[in-house]
Design a protein around this nucleic acid. Structure first.
Lengths: 236, 236
DNA sequence: AAGTGGTCTAGACCACCAT
DNA sequence: TGGTGGTCTAGACCACTTA
């Protein structure tokens, strides 16, 4: 019994969530109900929920209830889009999906996504613009097994963000990610697609996106032209 | 009375901290003592402290006490050094301070540090190496008024990290920061100092460092060569 | 052994939202 | 009006550190 009670409750809540016990959009049982269900006091139940709220797994709304946190525009923009225009304003990018196809993962992609060699992945190419100017070329890799039925049309005509689509349509909930950034030169493709010269310095940004229990579910490699933009990173 | 009690307690704790009521290294009064001092229950006092611990203003150690959080190597390395070698290992960089001088802030520096035009700043040039290879050239600007008595010798012979020096010697406690990253080309100076060719793509990283109440206390501009290194950013 | 923070409880009351 | 989460209390007991 070295583990605190509220940690056990947190774990139980998390398994219920990942098992889909409380579908997208519906409220969890009330705190009192959950407390009695798990045989703990409300204070202990709340401490478990506190942690999950901090990790953005759950969302509390006073007077309404507690929900599995939805992936709306705000969340994607604030937490998963780090490019900002030089004028300082944070804008949602215009996404054009150029291509979607299924293929066998190469060694690196398989490694990043913790897939067995030879597994199939979906590869999607996007161009992102800000204020009408193309700024980013995106290459997204998804494990095909988790995203069965994903098509170019679905991807293009989704009502919300990409991560909302993952969540609502495939039950894949992206919670956090890690990006690795290097400097590189624009190649022929970047030059053509972004209207810049070959050799111009760019950011190469790799992202691994994680779901519950830190399981990787998306890998992307982007190239961003930082002429009128910069990447923002918070420290501390 | 729309503000919760624990928020008021948090504010009182914070003013005591910034007023230097509990000097570096000594423990705060016990939670029971603080609770009775502020006339609240221990639970409420703990909730106020919880927030300050989350913001890394305070550090709790079970059985020992609660302290103003010290700026040790771990904190600097984990929270304020985002460059990592390609082998994935996070190493503390070797810092060589090349130059320190006082000067009048130019317009941009004054703006970043919220200083009146014409204020004096200290400008420090560092070269950072990882595994013996020079990787970063650093230009650090500090408001001279807050760092009176800072000398090149002090800077070079400090026992711990730069931020520990700020904290212990000048009472300047860096809590968080924001970095802006752009791609650039190595100029003559970078080429010479880092042993690379002119024109090689690099990261230009600007950092603004904040203390209590988000007051800026340091501004730096770095150029990093990402041949064998990358910048790591956490999302979510 | 004494003192610290960490966990857990039970209950009262408040603020907010839906109906 | 009834139900939800949010605040606050008072007290018991546990885990850890120091002496």
């Amino acid at each position: 019994m070295t583990e605190p009670l509220y940690k056990e409750v947190r774990a139980k809540l998390l398994t219920s969530i990942t098992d889909g016990a409380w579908p997208q959009g519906t409220a969890l049982p009330s705190e009192a109900a959950l407390a009695s269900k798990y045989g703990v006091s409300v204070g202990t139940l709340r401490k478990a929920v506190d942690e999950l709220v901090l990790e953005k797994v759950l969302l509390r709304q006073q007077g309404r209830g507690t929900f599995v946190a939805p992936h709306n525009f705000d969340r994607t923009l604030q937490d998963f889009f780090r490019l900002r225009h030089s004028d300082g304003v944070l804008r949602f990018p215009e996404v054009s999906t150029l291509n979607l196809r299924r293929q066998v993962a190469d060694a690196e992609t398989a490694a990043r996504l913790h897939l067995a060699p030879g597994s199939r992945v979906i590869r999607i190419i996007n161009q992102l613009g800000i204020k009408g100017t193309p700024v980013v070329l995106d290459e997204v890799f998804l494990p095909a097994a988790r995203f069965e039925g994903l098509t170019l049309e679905l991807f293009r005509n989704r009502p919300g963000t990409i991560y909302h689509l993952y969540q609502s349509r495939f039950g894949v909930n992206v919670l956090r990610g890690e990006e690795h950034i290097r400097a590189c030169r624009a190649g022929a493709r970047e030059a053509r697609m972004l209207g810049i010269s070959r050799g111009v310095p760019m950011l190469e940004i790799e992202r691994i996106s994680l779901t519950y229990y830190d399981v990787p579910v998306e890998w992307r490699r982007s190239r961003a032209h930082t002429g009128d933009h910069h990447y923002v990173s918070d420290l501390g």
